[in-house]
Amino acid sequence: MDRTISFFSAEASGPGLADLAGVLCGPGRIASFGRTAARLSAVIEEPWRARALVRECRRRGADAQVHLADCGRPLVRTSFRVDLLPFASRWRCGDEKAVPDGFRLSGAMLRMWALAGGSQYGNAYLLAVDPDAPETHERLAAALAPLGVPARLLGPKAELPAIKVTGRRRLECLRELIGDPPPGAEAAWPELLPARQAG
């Protein structure tokens, strides 16, 4: 069946280095080596996410490897690269992680975010945010609205901070934006709800 591809979807344009900002929306961190190079890294929950992120990074020309973090979870890390320096300058304020001024999400960034930390949660979908960078949470939630996916932060009783997307139409839009799941990611991809469950 033919379907219309949104201008903002992950399939609307070829993969580019800018898409890696989606990893920074979730658990990703950017570290610089002086003013000469920077490296993107992310500690994630499942091995399939590590494999998928490595593939997606390499598609964008950024070689990445999987290591073992001190906590025992997979760590995806690029090498230090000159072309990652702009991420370091935009996504940090002093020593703190920060959302750049004027930041605009794309479907490709959102796909990277879902791979790094997206999960189905009942009739909703959660996008993990960095628990060590609370100042980024509200701005990241707001960045979803222009894509047609208004969302909200989970309350303080949540086990981990995350942005929650609810409602059939919003989930349909989210699924269209991020495209089809890569092998092994099906269980963590947004599920489409029947019309009677629309929220």
Rank of each mutant, 00 (worst) to 15 (best):
P74W: 08
F8Q: 11
G155F: 07
P47G: 02
A62H: 05
M1Q: 11
S32T: 08
R90V: 14
G94W: 10
E45P: 01
R49P: 00
A151C: 11
P190C: 04
R175V: 07
G14I: 06
W189L: 03
E46I: 03
R139E: 05
D180V: 15
P146F: 09
E172T: 00
R39W: 00
E96I: 11
R77P: 13
A52W: 09
G199S: 08
A98R: 11
K164D: 05
A52P: 03
A42W: 01
G72N: 12
A21M: 05
L126M: 08
P86A: 13
A69Q: 07
A31T: 00
A42M: 04
L177T: 11
R59V: 09
I30V: 14
D2P: 13
A21I: 00
L160V: 09
A62N: 04
A38V: 06
K97Y: 15
S9M: 01
T136G: 09
G118H: 06
D180Q: 10
Q65A: 03
R73I: 10
S6M: 11
R39I: 10
R55Y: 01
C25G: 08
P15E: 05
P156Y: 10
H67K: 14
I178R: 07
A69F: 08
P182V: 14
H137L: 04
L20W: 02
